[in-house]
Every structure is written in structure tokens, then in C-alpha cells.
Simulated assay, not measured.
Amino acid sequence: MRDLLEGIEVDGRAPRLLFVHAHPDDETLATGVAIAHHAARGDEVHVLTCTLGEEGEVIPAHLAHLEGAPGDPLAEHRRAELRGAMEVLGVTHHLLGATGPGGAPAYRDSGMAGSAAAGHPRAWAAADLDEAASAVGAVLDAVHPDVVVTYDATGGYGHPDHVRTHEATCRAVARRGGTTPVYAVLTPRSWAVEDRAWLAAHVPPDRGFVVPGEGDPFASSVVPDAVVTHAVVAPSVVAVQHRALYAHETQVVVGDGWYALSNHVVSRLAGREGFARLDVATGRPVTEGAT
């Protein structure tokens, strides 16, 4: 598979990458390997977060009072978690629509599909797409990335905020001529099968975590191997990814080579991430017809 920066030519500066994500922790969960790898190489890495994850489910008991509390105290707590993760990863961070380091974001977490939070006036998933694209476009204009990375059209697993992030990013790039390559995070099916076997062999069976079984469905971002054309394979940065995930204490439990969210389902931290370039006009991988 090819490198994300293959064919990118820059003149007298480091290559510049922009990772666009919906909530704090998404950047490290979905693209932590690529972010850490490119930052360690000396590339200029930027992360754009579209909301502060106000609807997140809090895992630690000592922080449970933050979940769903009036005034969204979880937002500021997750902002601090995000700041810690960005320091570990060594990248530049942007919060969509915020003015200044402590400014409020323009949009709010919409919650999972069907959540009442989708009716909030600032809900990201319900944002006018042209306005959302303009907000993302303002960051594109400020950063001038050589490569943009975000979700596929399903948002990786169907979360409405992830889908809106994908849509707004594709439209923002398309408005600028569509010449900047946009890549979606995708997992080759063979990797997903290997990861489940690894998890079954390595996750302690007595801690209450759930290892997906052979018959369980894969996330929508798991695709035929031929669709995935680019990859970052860098096991050496998994330790950095681990430390960044520890910063997201409210959302993630980190084990030895794996993590779990509030649903207790485990996923592997395998030191590899796959990608495919998107056609920004359609939002679909240019290799989608591959088998």
C-alpha cells in the first residue's frame, strides 16, 4: 500500500496534513497511528475537532456527575482531555468555529442516531451543510494542507456527527477545486479478521470486556482489501497512541494493545491504519468498485 504523502511535492517546507474529526478522542482512536507517525517524521500535523463531545458517555465513576449535567460541564472537561492528547501527539489543534484558545465551538455534539440532542440549535449533525462546509473551509484556508484525512460516507460506524464531518469536509474541499487529496479511514477486511483473532487471544476474559466473535458484524468502515490503497503501518508509535488515549479518561479504557469504550467492546491497537482517497464530488472511495 502507498503512503499518504506519495506524490505530494512541497517546496522548502514540511508536508502539511489536516485530520478532521467530530469529537475529542476520535482523532486518537481512528487516526492516532497516522498522526503520531507523521508528527514523529517532522511533518506539520493539524487536527480539527468539530464539537466538544458534550453527549459522551462517561466511564469512570468519579467523573459520572459530568454526564448530561446542566451547563455541559463535560464539554470543558473533554476540552482539557483533548489538550492533553494533542500535547502527547505533538500536533496543532483547531476547534471548529471557536475564537481564541478558550472560545466556544460553533457546534455541539448531536449524540447517537435518534438522540434528543440532535434537536439542539447548535447540533453538528443538523447544521446546514453549506454553513458547515464554510466553517471547515475557513480552517482549510488557514492551514493550506497538502492532504486531508476524515471519515468515509458512513462516518466509520454511522454516527451522525461523523457523517456530517465527512460531508462538510468533502464539500469544503470540492469548493476549492477538489485538488487537495482527501482520504477516508478504512480497514481492510483481512486486518479486521486478524485483529479479532488477536483480541480473543490477548484480552483477559475475566474483566467484563466483550471480544467481537466470528459471526458479529464489522463496522461499516471495514471494506474489501482492494478498496484500501494507502496505509500507515508504524507499530513503533503505538506507545504514543496509548499515552494520548489515556488523556481521554472519560471515554476510553486502555489495555495492553487494546482499548474499550463505554459499551465494553474491545478493539485492537495494531499500529496500522488504512485509507482510500475519496471522490469529493460523491464522497465515495475512488476504488469502491474494486473487489
Rank of each mutant, 00 (worst) to 15 (best):
E44P: 12
V88D: 10
A219L: 10
H166A: 11
L89T: 05
E214I: 03
T187H: 07
R277G: 11
P235I: 08
A126R: 14
P235N: 09
F19N: 10
A135V: 01
R171A: 12
A39L: 07
G53Y: 01
V240D: 09
H242R: 15
E67S: 08
Q251V: 07
A117D: 10
V265D: 05
R272W: 03
V286T: 14
F209W: 10
M1Y: 14
V228E: 03
E55Y: 00
L96D: 06
M86R: 10
V265S: 08
A80P: 04
C170M: 09
H23C: 14
D109F: 02
G100F: 01
G274L: 00
L48Y: 04
G102S: 15
Y151K: 07
G289K: 08
V88Y: 05
A106F: 01
G177F: 03
T154E: 15
C170V: 12
V232K: 06
E6W: 04
W124I: 05
P160A: 13
A125C: 11
E273I: 00
I59K: 06
G84M: 08
L186V: 03
V211Q: 08
V91T: 15
A14N: 13
E81K: 04
V10H: 14
A69E: 07
R78P: 04
F209P: 02
D141I: 00
E67M: 10
Y157P: 13
A64Q: 13
P204A: 07
A192D: 09
R243H: 11
P285D: 06
G100P: 02
A117I: 04
V33K: 01
V163D: 01
T282G: 06
G215S: 14
E214C: 07
L199M: 12
A226M: 06
G111E: 05
L48G: 01
G53F: 00
S221Q: 08
A244Q: 12
V193I: 15
A36C: 11
S134N: 12
R207H: 14
V240E: 12
V182R: 01
G137D: 00
A14F: 02
H62D: 15
D206I: 00
A85E: 08
G68Q: 08
C170W: 03
S236N: 12
V280Y: 02
H162M: 14
R243F: 03
H264S: 13
D25F: 00
T250K: 02
A40G: 14
E9P: 02
E87S: 12
Y183M: 09
E9S: 15
